[in-house]
């Protein structure tokens, strides 16, 4: 069963700030969804390999050569805050 504390912990991991009301609603809704998901335990998957991907691709290589790339100015022009050729963020520590 998912608790209010779990929801607060997961919100922190997901970098979300939830309101009191959201915490309450998500505790209930996630609980219901995860309860429903527990039907998967009916299946014996002991010897079944997991499938992260449907295509039988292994490593996909390309030439290690400089190709076309985006103009740094075009990319930086979207930044909410910048300085020269850097993205600016609030203090980290």
């Amino acid at each position: 069963m998912i608790t209010r504390k779990d929801v607060e912990h997961v919100a922190l991991l997901g970098r979300l700030e939830l309101s009191e009301e959201e915490i309450e609603v998500y505790t209930k809704q996630l609980g219901r969804i995860l309860d429903y998901a527990s039907v998967l335990n009916e299946l014996d998957t002991e010897n079944v390999p997991p499938m992260a991907h449907v295509l039988p691709l292994q490593n996909v290589f390309r030439q290690d050569a400089v190709g076309r790339h985006l103009d740094p100015e075009a990319v930086l022009s979207h930044a909410p805050d910048r300085e020269d050729r850097f993205f600016r963020v609030p203090r980290l520590v």
């Binding site: 970098r15 700030e17 979207h78 930044a79 909410p80 963020v89 203090r91």
Partner: peptide, 21 residues
């Protein structure tokens, strides 16, 4: 950080959380 909405916060994690929420 790079594009889209930013909601300011006193430190970077607060900024992330406020922006995403």
């Amino acid at each position: 950080v790079r594009y889209g909405l930013r909601v300011e916060g006193e430190d970077v994690v607060t900024m992330y959380k406020k922006t995403r929420s």
